[in-house]
Design a protein around this nucleic acid. Structure first.
Length: 479
RNA sequence: CCGGGUGUGGCCCAGUUGGUAGGGCACCUGGUUUGGGACCAGGACGCCGCGAGUUCGAGUCUCGCCACUCGGACCA
C-alpha cells in the first residue's frame, strides 16, 4: 500500500473553488506576493520573468512596425487631465492625487497617471507643425495607478505594469489602420506566444474607452468560462487633438487636426494565462513564454555518474538555445516533480542509472503528463519538437474550451438560462441600443464583450427589444 | 462603496465556563535516504491584526479600526 504523501504545497482544486485555486497558483508558484501597501502586489522574480518575456515579444513587434519607445512623467497636472471631457469623467473616480511637495501644499494638485493620453497630447501640441512630422508612433513601458476598490493578483492591481502605445496620424484612415494593426499584434501575441485563442471585435459605445471614438478588443475565455479582455486598441478620431490644440499644416497649406490612437496590454494578461492553461497541479506555461522551458533532474543522484550525465544534458540543451535549468539539490525526486509542475515548466527531463544503461532519458510533458523515453542522441531535436507539441496542445485545448462554450441565443430568457447553466460566451443579434445592454446586464448579469469582426447572421431582430438587428454580439460575465 | 467570511511563529491550523500559547509543515545542525511531495534526533522562530474598554487577570468577552478574502456595484 502506498504511503500517504505529504502535500506540502497543495492547492485548492479549481472545481472546488476557482477563485481560491487562482490565488493559490499565483502565490505558490511564486509569481506574486502581497505587500503592506493595500491593493498593490510584488511581481516576484518568476512572475516578472514572464512579464519580461511578454515585453520582449511585444517590443520586437512594435519596433518592426516602426514604433519607438519614450518615457513620460508619472504625474499629470489636474488642468491637463481635464482638457478632454469624456476622458476625465472616465478616469477621475479612480485617480490618486499628489497634493504636497515635502511639507508645502501644491498650487495645483497632480494626478498619478492612470493612463497617459493627456501627457502625449500636451507634448505633441508642442512638436507637431507639419504633415512632415507625422505619423508619430510612440510607445512606453511603465506602470500606472488606478484607485481600485477591490484588487486581485494580476487581474486588478492599483498599480500595474503595462505598455501604452500612442500614435498620431494625418488621416482617419491611417489611424484606423494603426488601431487595427495593433489589435492584431495583441492577437498574434496571444495566439502564437501565449497559446490563448481570442475573439477579435469592437466594443460597444457603453464599453469603449473614455474619450475614444472606437475601441477594439481581444476577448479570451478562462477555465471557469468567464471572459477576460486581453488587450485593447482605441481610435480617438481628432477629439483629443482638438481638445489639446494639436494641428499641422498639410501639403495644401491648410491647417488640419491629426487623428490619434492608443493601445495597451498589461500584466493582467498573466492572470489570463494562468486561468487559461493552469490545472490542479498548478501553473501550466506555454513554452514560448516560460522562463524555464525544460528542467533537468538527475534521479538517484548519489549513484556514480548520474550528476555528470545530467549536467551533460543541461549543457547540450543550453547550447541548443533552450531556456533550461538543472535541479541538483538534495530534495527528493517526488518533491522536484511536484515543484516544477507547480511552476508550470513545460518539460521535465529525467536521467538516472537505468536510463544511462539504455542511453536514454525520460521526458515528461507538463500539459498532458505524458512521459516518453528519448535516445540521448535525439535529445535536442526531441525537446524542440515536444515544446512545439506542448504549445499546440495548449492552444487546441483552450480553443476547444472557447468553441465548446460559445452558444447562440434567440431570447434574453434563453441567454440568461445558458449563462446560468453553462457560462461562456453567448452570441445574439443586437439592435445597437444602450437600453438592450442595460437590460441584459440587469436581467441576465452579462455585459457585452464585443461585436466580433467575423459576423454571423443569426436572426433579423434583436432578441431583447425585437427591433431590427444591426450586429451579432458576444455577451459574457467578465473579470 | 454594500453584504458574508477570516485574522494565533514563514505557511496551514488547534486553543474548553477568561488563568498568561500548542501541533503539523517549512527553516537550521547532524546522520540515514533518494525512479513521484523521505526518515530519525536535536535546535531556533510569538506585541495571538491594531487600539480602546470590562476584569485581580483577555488569544478568548465588548466596542472601534485595519487588512485579506468571497459575492455584488465600479473598473483594464
Amino acid at each position: 500500500m502506498a504511503k500517504e504523501k505529504k502535500q506540502v504545497e497543495q492547492i485548492t482544486d479549481m472545481e472546488v473553488d476557482f477563485a481560491k485555486w487562482y490565488t493559490d497558483v499565483c502565490t505558490k508558484a511564486e509569481l506574486i506576493d502581497y505587500t503592506s501597501t493595500k491593493g498593490m502586489f510584488i511581481l516576484r522574480p518568476y512572475g516578472y520573468a514572464i512579464w519580461e518575456n511578454i515585453q520582449k515579444e511585444l517590443d520586437a513587434r512594435f519596433k518592426e512596425t516602426g514604433h519607438v519607445n519614450v518615457a513620460m512623467p508619472m504625474l499629470i497636472p489636474e488642468s491637463l487631465l481635464q482638457k478632454e471631457k469624456d476622458h476625465v469623467e472616465g478616469f477621475a473616480p479612480e485617480c490618486a492625487w499628489v497634493t504636497h511637495g515635502g511639507s508645502e501644499k501644491l498650487e495645483e494638485r497632480l494626478c498619478v497617471r492612470p493612463t497617459s493620453e493627456t501627457l502625449f497630447c500636451d507634448h505633441w501640441s508642442h512638436i507637431v507643425h507639419s504633415w512632415r512630422d507625422l505619423p508619430l508612433l510612440y510607445n512606453q513601458w511603465c506602470s500606472v495607478l488606478r484607485w481600485e476598490k477591490t484588487s486581485r493578483p494580476f487581474l486588478r492591481h492599483r498599480e500595474f505594469l503595462w505598455q501604452e502605445g500612442h500614435t498620431l496620424h494625418a488621416t482617419a484612415e491611417e489611424a484606423i489602420a494603426e488601431t487595427e494593426q495593433q489589435l492584431e499584434t495583441y492577437a498574434d501575441l496571444c495566439e502564437n506566444v501565449l497559446a490563448m485563442p481570442v475573439v477579435r471585435g469592437q466594443k460597444t459605445d457603453k464599453e469603449k474607452f473614455a474619450g475614444a471614438e472606437r475601441t477594439y478588443t481581444i476577448e479570451c475565455m478562462m477555465h471557469d468560462r468567464k471572459a477576460l479582455q486581453g488587450g485593447t486598441s482605441h481610435y480617438f478620431g481628432d477629439g483629443f487633438a482638438k481638445a489639446f490644440d494639436i494641428s499641422y499644416t498639410d501639403k495644401e497649406n491648410k491647417l488640419q487636426a491629426p487623428h490619434e490612437t492608443s493601445w495597451g496590454l498589461s500584466t493582467r494578461i498573466i492572470g489570463g494565462l494562468i486561468m487559461t492553461h493552469g490545472d490542479n497541479r498548478g501553473l501550466v506555461l506555454p513554452p514560448r513564454i516560460a522562463p524555464t522551458q525544460a528542467v533537468v533532474i538527475p534521479v538517484a543522484m548519489h549513484k556514480e555518474g548520474v550528476l555528470a550525465a545530467a549536467e551533460g544534458l543541461y549543457e547540450r540543451l543550453k547550447t541548443a538555445g533552450i531556456r533550461v535549468k538543472i535541479d541538483d539539490s538534495e530534495q527528493s525526486m517526488g518533491w522536484k516533480a511536484a515543484e516544477y509542475e507547480m511552476k508550470g515548466v513545460p518539460l521535465r527531463v529525467e536521467i538516472g542509472p537505468k536510463d544511462m544503461e539504455k542511453e536514454q532519458c525520460c521526458i515528461c510533458r507538463r500539459d498532458s503528463g505524458e512521459k516518453v523515453f528519448v535516445p540521448l542522441t535525439e535529445l535536442e531535436t526531441e525537446v524542440v519538437r515536444l515544446l512545439e507539441e506542448v504549445h499546440k496542445g495548449l492552444y487546441e485545448r483552450a480553443a476547444k474550451n472557447l468553441a465548446d462554450h460559445t452558444y447562440p441565443a434567440f431570447s434574453l430568457e434563453e441567454a440568461k438560462q445558458i449563462q446560468e447553466e453553462k457560462g461562456g460566451f453567448i452570441k445574439t443579434m443586437w439592435c445597437g441600443e444602450l437600453q438592450c445592454e442595460l437590460d441584459m446586464k440587469e436581467k441576465a448579469g452579462m455585459t457585452s464583450r464585443c461585436i466580433p469582426f467575423v459576423q454571423e447572421h443569426l436572426a433579423d431582430t434583436c432578441p431583447i427589444c425585437g427591433k431590427p438587428a444591426k450586429h451579432m454580439i458576444y455577451w459574457g460575465v467578465a473579470y
